[in-house]
Design a protein around this nucleic acid. Sequence first.
DNA 1: ACCTGAACACCGTTCAAGT
DNA 2: ACCTGAACACCGTTCAAGT
Lengths: 229, 229
Amino acid sequence: MAAERAPRTKARSPLNRERVLRAAIRLADKSGIESLSMRKLGGEVGVEAMSLYNHVAGKEDILDGMIELIVGEINEAVGATDGPPDDWKAGMRQDILAARRVLLRHRWAPDVLESRNNFSPAVMKYFDSLIERFRAAGFSMDLTHHALHALGSRALGFTQELYDDSEQPDADTVAMLQQMSTRFPNIVAMVAEVSHDTDTTLGWCDDQFEFEFALDLLLDGLDRLRAAR
Amino acid sequence: MAAERAPRTKARSPLNRERVLRAAIRLADKSGIESLSMRKLGGEVGVEAMSLYNHVAGKEDILDGMIELIVGEINEAVGATDGPPDDWKAGMRQDILAARRVLLRHRWAPDVLESRNNFSPAVMKYFDSLIERFRAAGFSMDLTHHALHALGSRALGFTQELYDDSEQPDADTVAMLQQMSTRFPNIVAMVAEVSHDTDTTLGWCDDQFEFEFALDLLLDGLDRLRAAR
DNA sequence: ACCTGAACACCGTTCAAGT
DNA sequence: ACCTGAACACCGTTCAAGT
């Protein structure tokens, strides 16, 4: 009643867990997960590093919280796309690719997901829905369980690649590779034949195509096992 | 000629790159990769941390060198098992499972492998042989390339699991999981039906079985694509 | 040629002290 | 209730100094 003057437009909302986590995600999106430190994160929200401990338990808690928010995003994206359930493969494919699109906006998330055991509600909900899908399609519990292991991180929309196009090999590596041409003729032949553009050393793999290729390979195989009872 | 007295049995061989890397592997095998620091590694070989820089370029170089030695082990194990090449699936399966047995003795190796681009000679040789196998079995270059992506880290004998049985969930996590039973009925049902032993929470997955299940799923699928030309 | 001690620029986290 | 400064116990790495 008294002092109506804009309590909504406070110059800066007070610090809380959510704001800390949002800032952590912003920082990781921008500079990579390796440059996410308590001191830098404190700077991002305008506070000393030690003050963060008033809102989160520690760095592990921050990483867990970041994942929780990202997978929350995934769950929303997945929930939005429930088409006709007549084709289980098409439906699951659609969901997994939707999850992938979210993760492509947060390149650090796969690394963090793989570095910890994921028992957060959001991740549990995602897998619970996935199991439900398999069951509805006629998969036995055993086969559903094997299917989840076979899909692995692909169930969440990502694969941890052994070779990363994004970071270019340094000069030493390039020189070594050229020297090795005679020792590894099959690799050289494959790169030569498969690479499309003029860039000869790396960046010649279409990650999205390869992801879908392997995903379809697995879904087709699983469907065959399902049909075989 | 002079002083025949045992120059072979020197009390301690002088430090060199190989001894540093062997010590690093020993330390990682024993205590995990996260406790491999320059100072501890120096202690392991009886020298201050700073002296290590006389033999290796830095920590990244040490990690690369460790991988090089481990994959060298894999190449030996794989080379030993060349049976009849009439069945490409059986041969490749045998090789990949041999690689897996080496990695199971060095549990830190998968993490390190995934954390860097692997252009070391040993890794190149491994993949060169794998490509050769695919080609000999009649795979096109394109399909070989897709096959390598589809196998991913499984080609080297490991998968990065999203859930790790080895580290037990803490009390908080267990409590939370029990609370969640009603929210995630499908997960609860799957765990209940699939778990064999009395241990209800975790450790109920047979990693080796799941690895072989997914490997066979992929190899069967690839064989079908090969036969379809 | 190899090793050392001190130092630098970072970490995550604890704690007593402020308001 | 929230924030701070100093401190602790660690990192990887550089550098001048020793032998």
